[in-house]
């Protein structure tokens, strides 16, 4: 809904906060999602995402949500679907070139970004949309990506250790392991 969308941009800072919390929850849920299988949770999560974001931001389910980098103004509502707007056709008063009665999505985006804590993210050059992801859940994608990054960071620590003690690794492989550990092999509890 256009009016709700405008409200969300006016309240960009609050929504930014809310979104960060949601993201943390989704990342925390990664082990659960992995256990159930991302394939199984895809449909129900995408359904909830479609309803919520559709109401708040007129979300089009591009599957590559960048709201926090676009002032909480969904760029898929731009008739040209720009990911790095606005174009040069904005009408006086900040109205859209293609739909003259609608406010330019990207003019609103820059205004929204100015209200946000991490608003500077709008200065980052965004890649073109991968159209094959249309309709999929962006929330799950973020959860997967962030969780993978966290795992990678942990891996980097182990790699560094193995590299710092190269000979020990040769003599006693178990002392500085590099291969990925199965879940049951690690308890996460170091005091045992």
């Amino acid at each position: 809904m256009y009016r709700v969308r405008l409200f969300a941009i006016r309240k960009a800072r609050s929504f930014e906060w809310l979104y960060r919390r949601l993201e943390a929850v989704m990342v925390a849920c990664d082990p659960l999602f992995r256990r159930i299988g991302y394939n199984r949770v895809e449909r129900p999560v995408a359904f909830v995402e479609r309803i919520t974001k559709g109401f708040l931001f007129d979300c089009r389910m591009c599957g590559q949500c960048v709201l926090s980098s676009t002032g909480m103004s969904c760029p898929m509502n731009c008739p040209k679907q720009l990911r790095n707007g606005p174009c040069g056709g904005v009408r006086p008063g900040g109205f859209c070139e293609v739909i003259p009665e609608m406010k330019c999505v990207w003019t609103l985006a820059w205004q929204g970004a100015a209200r946000m804590k991490g608003g500077d993210k709008i200065r980052e050059v965004l890649p073109p949309v991968d159209r094959s992801l249309q309709g999929s859940s962006s929330w799950l994608r973020v959860s997967r990506e962030k969780a993978a990054k966290l795992r990678e960071a942990r891996e980097a620590g182990r790699t560094a250790l193995a590299q710092a003690f190269p000979n020990a690794r040769v003599i006693e492989p178990a002392s500085a392991p590099l291969a990925e550990e199965p879940r049951r092999a690690t308890t996460g509890d170091t005091r045992k």
């Binding site: 040209k80 990911r83 790095n84 174009c87 293609v98 050059v125 073109p128």
Partner: peptide, 20 residues
């Protein structure tokens, strides 16, 4: 936009934007 031109029924592509 295609609407300003002589063939407004054309399908707009906009796969890239100018910056990407």
């Amino acid at each position: 936009g295609v609407g300003t031109g002589d063939q407004p029924g054309a399908r707009p592509v906009f796969d890239f934007d100018s910056i990407s």
